[in-house]
Amino acid sequence: MSTYDPNVAPKVSNKPIIWSLFAAGGTVTALLTPVLVLLFALAVPLGILPAEMFSYARMESLLASPLIRLVVFGILFLSLWHTAHRMRITVHDFGLRSDGAAVFVFYGLAAIATIVLAVALI
């Protein structure tokens, strides 16, 4: 048993943060991503909705509301970090054994995308 030393700070784990982002992202993407793909990637090419519905003017007016921009930021932020964490774990199963490289690549990409998202929405 290790002795408690009040002069040494306990090791702080980052697991609660990354796993809660994974779980929240997993739930948000499970509820919303299929309909969002259908709406924004498939509806126009498959002829379900007219292209005018996705015009520059209409998208600008929908995103004029700060609340809508905040919701869009939240959904995409959680989706990105869900992917980053799950892919970090999954590349190990695909035989790539460097966790350091996985952290650098996936969390790095998610961080860059989060910054671009924030810049685009401000």
Partner: peptide, 20 residues
């Protein structure tokens, strides 16, 4: 599946950036 969700999310981020 998370890779495809990530690719879609990046496409949407890119779309918002192009919109701006």
């Amino acid at each position: 599946s998370s890779l495809f969700i990530g690719v879609f999310s990046v496409m949407m981020v890119w779309g918002l950036y192009r919109l701006s």
